[in-house]
Structures are given as C-alpha cells and as structure tokens.
Write a protein that binds this DNA or RNA. Structure first.
Length: 435
RNA sequence: GGAGAGGUGGCAGAGCGGCUGAAUGCACUGGUCUUGAAAACCAGCAAGGGUGAAUAGCCCUUCGUGGGUUCAAAUCCCACCCUCUCCGCCA
C-alpha cells in the first residue's frame, strides 16, 4: 500500500511513476473521492467532538444532582445526525480504501522502463551453458525414463500440474532442500523458521496477495456446504500459501520492533500452492509450472535506509546456491511492466535449461520497501521514540522443483543417467549417479 | 467432541454505565542525590487517523473482532474469533 500522504500531496507525480509499471491511476476519481473524504471526515469528527462534550456535561450535572432534562432534549437529535454522517463517511472511505489498496507499488528509480519480460535488463551472467556431445533431453523425458518422475499417476491421484517423484530423484529433491536450508542458515546468517502452510486473509492482505489476486489462491472452507454459512466461510476460510513469503513476513505484522532486533533474516522451506489461473496454456509440460511445489524462501526485515543493500545481499545469497550447484544462470532486473504488484525492484535469476535451450526463472528477489510494512503495520521504534515502517525484502533461495529440473537437464549424461552434483552427495549417502 | 474459565497498555493486573485512554506494580526514559553504581525520591512513558508547513497545537478512534442498546459503553445485549483448564479422542 502506498502512503496516503504521498497520494494527497504528490498525486500527479505518483501517477506518472505508476505509468512505468503500466498502471493508469485514475487521478480524477481519486481527487474527487479524497475531496469528499476530507469534507466528510472533518464534519463527522466535529459532530463527534460536540456529542462527546455534551454527554460529559450531562454526566457532570447529573452527579451534582442537577436537572438534565433540558440537556437531554438538546442532545437527542445528535444521534441520528451523527449516524448519517458516519454512514456517508464510511462509504466514501471504503471506496477510497478499495482504490488505494489496489494501487501497485511505485518502482524504484533504477528500474528500467518496459512493458514485458523482453524489456528486462540483463545484469550479469555466471557459468557457461554446457555444450553436450549429444542432443539434450528435457527433464520430462529424462525423469520418466529413469522412473523418477510420474506425471500421469499424479494426474490420476489429483489433477494436472502435479507430479509424483520416486527413488533417486525424490531423494535428490529432498537433498536440494536440505542443502539450501543449511547454506542459508549456516553460511548466510538466516534463522531457520518453520511456518504454517495455511494463512488467514489478514496475512495475505499484508503481503499483497489479497484482495487483488484472490483467484490465484487455493482457499479452504471451514463451514459445511450450507448456503447460510457462505459469509462465514468467506471470513474465516484459510488460504494455502502461494509462497512462504506470506507466513514468514507476517511474523512481524502488528509488531513494533526495537532497532537492535533488525535486521531480521529468516529462511524457511515450505510447499507453495498456486492456482495458475491465468496460465492455462503455458508450461503444461513438466515440472516448471505446478499447482504444488517446494521452495526455500529468504526474508529480510530491515530499517528503511538499508533495504537496497539488503536486496543486493539477499540476491547474492540465492546466486550462491546456483554457483555451488555449478548451474549456469543470468541475473536480470525486471522492467517496470514485468514488476510484481508489491515490488519496488526485482531481480530474477534465470537458470540455463539445456532441454529448453533457454534461461528460465528460478528465483525472484524483491524489495518491497514499506509497501508490505504499511499493510501489515510492521514498525520499528526510532531514536525519537516514534515508529517508522520497516522495509521488507524476500527472494527464493531457490525454487526447489525448478532447481531439480535444472540439475536433471544440466547434469544429464548421454546414456540418460544423471550425475549427482558434488555438494549434494553428502545428503545422498555418497551416491554419485542416478540411473 | 463434551464441560468450564477468560481475552484490558511492553508485561502483570484493577475497573463492570458518565469526571477512565484507562488505578496500581514491574519494565523503560529523563532528572535529583552519589567519586561511580545501586537504592531512594521526582517526572515522563500506547497506537492509528484527521487537520496542519510542522516530528507544534487541537480533534477523532481504539480495552479480542463485528453489530446492537444509550445523551453517554472497557463496563449492558447478540454473533463470531482466539486462549487456557478438565474429560474424551488422536499423529
């Protein structure tokens, strides 16, 4: 959520910046609503003040044994007037809130202009895409041949976009998770946390998934199939997390931190659940886009001034995993048009996939500045004993399913076997090959 | 699942229609005292929002959440959420 003060004082400039993100803010509508809000709020609060002082006076007179009939008659009409004013204010305020809550974050000055992923800016490359002496297969062919990936049985059990892993690949998937958690926990200074895989609507609102992206989430229903309970369900149903960002970041929701507690650096491994509602035709083959996948997530909570350093640092931590696995990748800065709703700046890490002969996203590291903090009321006490909003940064370190795909495709051998990366062998009882 | 108790400021804990944004204690901050520290004493100490140039002043809101009664609600009524205790069940 943007600072309402910013919208009031710098509306046009903010609208211009949002254009970089491809978001057209309705300036007229906003100003009009804001004007009404101001008038109504001032008027309503004046009425409240008036009512309060009169009511207090009645109490005073009464306690002194005076006659309050006249005073009561005088104040009698206030109730209705106040209620009407309040109702009108509520209407305008909720309309205004709806508008503000739907406005995306403003991109940072360093974000390149552009409308699609074609305009993303490459920052760096690491490693050389391998030149195989045979024709590269993709992970589906390799995995199915080994008997380690079974999409058909997953579809039978559940639905499309799920997978069953078996044997060495299932084990390597687990090894990757352990390796990532250990590296971030021991070498990069993150506190390992275990978090719920379901979250309430307040948490999803806090990190920005709600209300705008409800159709991307899986939601549970608590009450029975009773139409009378519909509203109940909407209020209290829980969401399967689309990313651990939701549950980790919301640890600091409604919290005032002390300066000494920052920076907070946390890492968690969780499954993630996504409806993928908007991508019916895309990546239907293989493990690239699933309804359920594992991810190791990094989150930092820092003072406002430190967040861009933290973004660089956190991105470096994710890169380190790719480097240790010896997987070629490139780092890109997302352009304005490709930037997510809540992010001010995002680096994507794209790993080389020989089977697709291209780089594919495997990590996304973003600085949200105060956008999430404002929604969550996550604050830190400053030197003047006042509260400042914190900044939040997060990134995948890494998406485990896609990392498995990358390992399968980059470590494939001519006979269809997969060499196990050295750093994983300790997690796999010393095995060197899956065949 | 059954029975009961309860949700008040950073914590503990009073208040059960008006002068209560909220007693008291602890914690914290500043001061006096002291060579220094402790103790003692004095003072301060919630958040969100509006107005505003203002981190000034004034005003509004908030005692789990939402609604209701009332001129007036932390206090009364209703619904929901959450926590705890006992019994049952259970990885």
């Amino acid at each position: 959520m943007l600072d309402p003060q910013l919208l009031r004082n710098d509306l046009q400039a903010t609208a211009d910046q949002l254009l970089i993100k491809g978001y057209a803010l309705n300036v007229e509508k906003y100003s009009e609503l804001e004007k009404r809000r101001k008038t109504l709020q001032v008027a309503t609060e004046e009425l409240q003040a008036e009512r309060n002082s009169r009511s207090k006076n009645i109490g005073k007179v009464k306690s002194q044994g005076g006659d309050v009939d006249a005073l009561l008659a005088e104040v009698a009409q206030f109730g209705d007037k106040l209620k009407a004013a309040q109702r009108e204010l509520d209407e305008v305020q909720s309309e205004l809130n709806e508008l503000i809550e739907a406005i995306p974050n403003v991109p940072h000055a360093s974000v390149p202009k552009g409308t699609s992923e074609d305009d993303n800016e490459e920052v760096s490359r690491w490693g050389e895409p391998s030149t195989l002496e045979f024709e590269a297969k993709d992970h589906v062919d390799l995995g199915e041949a080994i008997g380690g990936l079974d999409f058909a049985v997953a579809t039978k059990i559940t639905a499309s976009r799920f997978v069953v892993m078996k044997g060495g690949l299932a084990r390597m998937h687990r090894a990757l998770t352990q390796f990532m958690l250990d590296t971030h926990g021991q070498d990069h200074g993150y506190q390992e946390v275990y978090v719920p895989y379901m979250a309430n609507r307040h948490s999803l609102f806090g990190t920005g998934q709600l209300p705008k992206f409800a159709e991307d989430q899986f939601k549970t229903s608590l009450a029975a199939d009773d139409p009378n309970q519909k509203e109940e369900q909407d209020q209290h149903g829980l969401y399967m997390i689309p990313t651990a960002e939701v549950t980790i970041t919301n640890i600091v929701r409604d919290v005032i931190l002390e300066q000494g507690e920052l920076p907070l650096k946390m890492v968690a491994h969780t499954p993630c659940f996504r409806r993928e509602a908007g991508s019916y035709g895309r990546d239907t083959r293989g493990m690239i886009r699933q309804h359920q996948f594992e991810k190791v997530e990094l989150v930092q909570v820092v003072p406002a001034g430190d967040s861009y350093d933290a973004l660089e640092q956190l991105t470096g931590h994710a890169e380190k995993i790719l480097q240790l696995l010896n997987l070629p990748y490139r780092k890109v800065t997302l352009c304005g048009g490709d930037l997510g709703f809540a992010a001010a700046k995002t680096y994507d890490l794209e790993v080389w996939l020989p089977g697709q002969n291209t780089y594919r996203e495997i990590s996304s590291c973003s600085n949200f500045e105060a956008f999430q903090a404002r929604r969550m009321l996550a604050r830190v006490r400053n030197d003047k004993n006042k509260t400042d909003l914190v900044h939040t940064i997060n990134g995948s370190g890494l998406a485990v399913g896609r990392t498995l795909v990358a390992v399968i495709e980059n470590y494939q051998n001519g006979d269809g076997s997969i060499t196990i990366p050295e750093v994983l062998r300790g997690y796999m009882g010393g095995l060197t090959l899956i065949e």
